[in-house]
Amino acid sequence: MPWIDACALVDIEEEDLVRLDHEGRTYAIYRIWDEEVYCTDGLCTHEKVHLADGLVIDHTIECPKHNGQFDVRTGIAIRSPACEALSTYPARVADGRVLVEIP
C-alpha cells in the first residue's frame, strides 16, 4: 500500500485527531504526544459515527455519540457499545508531515 501525505504534524493538536477522507473512505489520524501518531478507520464500528468529533484521552478515542471507546494503537474496542475493533494502519512523521499507509 502506498504512503499518503495526510497533513502537517502541526495540523493536529496533541491529544487530538483529524479526519482524512481518501478514495471514498474515512480515516482518523491521531496525534498523542509530539511525533507519536496513529491511524484507524474513521467511523465507529457501533453506528458509523465519525470519530473525528470524538475525544482522545491518552491512547483512547471515545465516540462522540455513544461514548464507546477504542485503543488507537490496536483498534481494540475497550468500552461498549463499541464491541468490534477498528482497523488500524501504519502512520509516521517525516519532515513535519504525517504519512499514513492506507489502501
Binding site: H46, E47, K65, H66, S80
Partner: peptide
C-alpha cells in the same frame, strides 16, 4: 439499560 440508553441517544 446500557444498550437501551445508547439507542435512546441514537
Amino acid at each position: 439499560w446500557h444498550w437501551s440508553h445508547a439507542r435512546h441517544h441514537t
